[in-house]
Computed example of a mutant assay.
Amino acid sequence: MTLNVRDLRIDDSADVEAFALVRHLALPYIMWTPAAIVHRLAHTHPDARFRSLVAEEDGEVIGTAQVQLAHDSPEPGQGMLNIYVRPDRTRRGAGDLLVRAAEEHLTSHGATKLFAWVLDEPANRTFAERHGYHASRSAHFLRLDLTAAALPPLETPPAGVELRSAAEFTDDPRPLFELDAETASDEPSDVDTEFGDYQNWIEENWKHPLLDRELTMVALVEGRPAAFSVAHTDPASRRYATAMTGTSRDFRGRGLAKLAKNASLHRARAAGFTEALTGNDAGNGPMLAINKWFGYEICGSEVRFVRELT
């Protein structure tokens, strides 16, 4: 048995498909498409020092890692590594080799505090603890069967509020960038986010291959984007995912995020999508309540593990 770790070959479609398969088998609650994997590797900000790694056993890809610095955080020296091994190929050393390679990469670029999402299962938690990580916050994956869900009826927006799709912002998406930047900075997390690079947002988010601008809905108050629900879709699998839902601080408590997300879900079902996915920090009570109202059910959980280096 020969086991080695190397970088993902972005120009090798079979290699990218193997990476996507491992991720799908290990973490089926997220849409892993080859196009999205290549896009992230090609367009993540260079300051993130982003790498996609694979663990290969006798020519077969059995493990993966995505590794980067938190370049958009006001606190320097933070790194992130997310390791996933095929469930039927565990206990062969792939995870250990990926952790070692990821940590070496991050520390070589100045990281002193490392964060890793780990599935909330005994074997995964034990693996993280064995490598010197301790548990922090948790999050949930949620699923909604769009073929059976009794979605709340569509509501007429209140006076002064209108709903538009992101497709209507094609000529000037900057207002959506500004809303995204504000809401992302308020999300519960171990790692604070402050992004202000508009051009990078265009490349990394606005041009993301899974972004569905027709299904991404924006609530405007007197012409100003106030809330939105960002939709990612994979027509091949008929899966739809909410990548972000948020409301500007000035307009919270008015049900605008719920209004936008409901419109997006109705459009998704009408377009033939059969499964809706999303994820929430376990401490984000308001968003968990909204998703429960829609009928989402928790289908998996993960824990953020942290290692501080001396």
Rank of each mutant, 00 (worst) to 15 (best):
195 F>Y: 14
195 F>G: 01
196 G>K: 15
196 G>D: 15
197 D>C: 02
198 Y>T: 02
198 Y>P: 08
199 Q>Y: 01
199 Q>K: 14
199 Q>A: 12
200 N>K: 08
200 N>F: 04
201 W>V: 09
202 I>V: 14
203 E>T: 05
203 E>F: 08
204 E>R: 09
204 E>F: 00
205 N>R: 10
206 W>M: 09
207 K>S: 03
207 K>C: 01
208 H>I: 08
208 H>N: 08
209 P>G: 02
209 P>V: 04
210 L>N: 09
210 L>Q: 09
211 L>F: 10
211 L>S: 03
212 D>W: 11
213 R>G: 02
213 R>D: 07
217 M>Y: 13
217 M>C: 01
217 M>G: 09
217 M>Q: 10
218 V>F: 03
219 A>W: 12
219 A>P: 07
220 L>R: 02
221 V>W: 06
221 V>S: 09
221 V>G: 13
222 E>F: 06
223 G>I: 04
224 R>L: 02
225 P>E: 11
225 P>D: 00
227 A>K: 05
228 F>C: 01
230 V>R: 06
230 V>N: 00
232 H>E: 11
236 A>V: 15
236 A>Q: 15
236 A>N: 14
236 A>R: 15
237 S>R: 15
237 S>M: 04
240 Y>G: 00
240 Y>L: 01
241 A>H: 09
241 A>T: 12
241 A>F: 15
244 M>D: 13
244 M>R: 04
244 M>C: 08
245 T>G: 07
246 G>S: 15
247 T>S: 10
247 T>Q: 11
248 S>V: 02
249 R>T: 14
249 R>I: 08
250 D>G: 02
250 D>Q: 11
250 D>N: 13
253 G>Y: 11
254 R>H: 14
257 A>M: 11
258 K>L: 12
258 K>G: 11
259 L>I: 13
260 A>R: 07
261 K>H: 10
263 A>S: 10
264 S>C: 06
266 H>I: 02
268 A>F: 15
269 R>V: 05
